[in-house]
Design a protein around this nucleic acid. Structure first.
Lengths: 222, 222
DNA sequence: TGAAAATGAATGAATGTTCATTTTCAGCGC
DNA sequence: GCGCTGAAAATGAACATTCATTCATTTTCA
């Protein structure tokens, strides 16, 4: 986890950033509807009333939370693009995100956001914007590692980018499942991550393969 | 919980079943906390008070909803096991579940349940039980198509089963995303499903490969 | 001193759940 | 058919609680 130095003045109020960091866990534990403004305010270390000076609504908090994550991811991708071996670095980054002992709570927050996004249109749009952002970034990297010009990659590899997102999100959610003390169904996490990584490799292999292959649409020979 | 004959009323009140069918959409649209008991009761065509004669709590409704789905999935798998070409049938079934024009709302309900399961322990346990059920069923099919005895398959292929579940769930959620009228990020659904199916094929290929391969744990060339 | 920051009690709306009451209706003697 | 009966089915108004949001008041501090 190469934590990029958080610039104090990143077009974001550092105070708000501090609040978000404290508030995040409450959302993870209690969910969107489960976390009351009073509790959130207390977690932020201030009174309920004052809390509204920073975030005019609960949805706004989630929105800011998403924006914060988006920025982080964005920076990761920028760094990725500047790397001299983007493919290898991408693989590393994905492996990290799947093993995810660090951002383990991220997955639960994502699940929460995903559910909320389905009914709250404001959050829904922001969430969709974030997904779209990430998708674009992946396409950019795909363009790099495949050698295809970006517009072409955007057309041919859009589905691959989508699949990659599904894989990583699903795997990270599965990985950080809470209280897996079952003797029965407990799958070895390592083996699971290995399988997922092999799937990712298979997907990335297709991406690089499409750079040499000129057929835009291949009828799956299977 | 072995082979229960799928009689028309399977130890389940047909009335309750009818109610669940009507109530389901409300949960899909409004979410767990968003759907009030009053609204749910109205959707079921009865008063709030009477509603409690059928379901003692909101969580109980979700629980019953999950149980219903589980039964459905269970039957699918039983039929799968009796098929004479389980591998091909499994592929078909997965493809169906991914394309999912039918059960499109299922995915959103799943997302909702997943989020709720993280904070409501009752639903969490039931949800986990369902996942475990499905996992077992998949293992059983894997055992069939690989030729490995079931206990062995349960050990060697647990991770594959997990990965398969992640893939299918993730893909179906992504597929049924609402209002994808964007000109920008709209990925061709067909292409997406193709990629996912190729990943699934890759996974299933590993499953059948492990039947001939005797190495229990392979260090992945890293 | 005065504006910004912060408080916390109050408000009003919403909601899960309960319950006293009413409705429905099958059985039954006539 | 008819009135009676009693239990199950159904109602909808209340209850207690919770919670987002507001605001008059107090504190901070440059």
């Amino acid at each position: 986890m190469q934590h990029v130095v958080h610039d104090t003045h990143d077009a974001t109020d550092p105070r708000a950033d501090e609040i978000l960091a404290r508030v995040r866990d409450v959302f993870v534990e209690k969910g969107f509807d489960g976390a009351s403004m009073q509790v959130l305010a207390k977690a932020a270390g201030m009174s309920a009333g004052n809390f509204y000076r920073y975030f005019p609504s609960k949805a706004a908090i989630i929105a800011a939370l998403i924006a914060r994550d988006m920025q982080e991811v964005h920076q990761d991708f920028v760094a990725l693009g500047q790397s001299e071996n983007p493919l290898a670095r991408l693989r590393e980054l994905l492996a990290d995100r799947i093993s995810d002992q660090f951002h383990g709570t991220d997955a639960r927050l994502w699940a929460e956001i995903e559910a909320v996004a389905a009914r709250d249109s404001e959050i829904g749009q922001i969430s969709k914007a974030m997904q779209s952002e990430i998708h674009s970034q992946i396409i950019r990297i795909f363009s790099l590692i495949s050698g295809l010009p970006e517009p072409v990659a955007r057309i041919r590899l859009a589905a691959h980018a989508d699949a990659l997102m599904v894989l990583v999100k699903g795997a990270s959610i599965r990985t950080c499942h809470p209280s897996d003390a079952d003797v029965q169904g407990a799958t070895d996490p390592m083996a699971f991550q290995d399988v997922i990584m092999r799937l990712i490799d298979s997907l990335l292999a297709e991406v690089v393969a499409l750079s040499t292959d000129d057929v835009p649409m291949r009828k799956t020979a299977r």
